[in-house]
Amino acid sequence: MALLEVEKVTKRFGGLVALNDVSFSVAQGEILGIIGPNGAGKTTLFSAISGFAPPSSGDVRFDGTSIVGVLPDRLVRRGLIRSFQIVQTFADMTTLDVVTTAALTRRPIREAIDYAAHVLGRVGLAGKEHLTPLTLSLQDKKLLELAKCLATDPRCILLDEVMAGLTMAETDKPIAVVRELNRQGVTIVMVEHVMPVIMQLATRMVVINFGEKIAEGSPADIVKDQHVIDAYFGEHLDA
């Protein structure tokens, strides 16, 4: 059964149609990759699903019930969490404090602190528990975004470009974490520009261009799709 269903979602910002009639569904245990050129509407799609910017029309269902209008923090408690493309920092807290707050979603405080330390180790931030997120490198900030998501024990994670800006070697750690999470049954939807990463992780892909879904299929099929080549790969492959 589908864990997450997006049905005819449209999002308007004034006159701008950022998403137009987008539909797809994500099965329990899947890794769905979402790709599309800059400004295609990928982040807007995540905001619409996760309650930060509800759709202008259409429906989003999580685990069979509509979640349109449900606040983001409630969705986190129900097991749906997103990461942010623009990494969110906290000025006066340590990374351990931030991840502990996320862990408090489902655990009492002492357990939450231990679990947060464990999660930081798991994403590769061991030893950086007492730094403030502001002072972390870009790579570490991205890993912190991942750690915050993990600490809430989600059933479904929306990852918005957690590998962007990293070198190939730096993506090893997050890729391993995503794989392992997925093995444990967590459903993953990820937006990524780094094609080699998404090609090896995704079990299925959705392509968005100018706010519309233009293709959907296995990674192997997607790279052969003429619309996709025109809209997306063309510019990248020529470069």
């Binding site: 996760s50 930060f52 606040l71 983001p72 923090d73 986190v76 408690r77 969490i81 997103r82 942010f84 969110q88 920092t89 906290f90 000025a91 006066d92 807290m93 931030v98 707050t101 996320a102 408090l104 979603t105 915050k148 600490a151 809430t152």
Partner: peptide, 10 residues
């Protein structure tokens, strides 16, 4: 520190 990010972690 960050109200929106607080909401995003539950």
């Amino acid at each position: 520190d960050n109200e929106n990010a607080a909401r995003a972690i539950g």
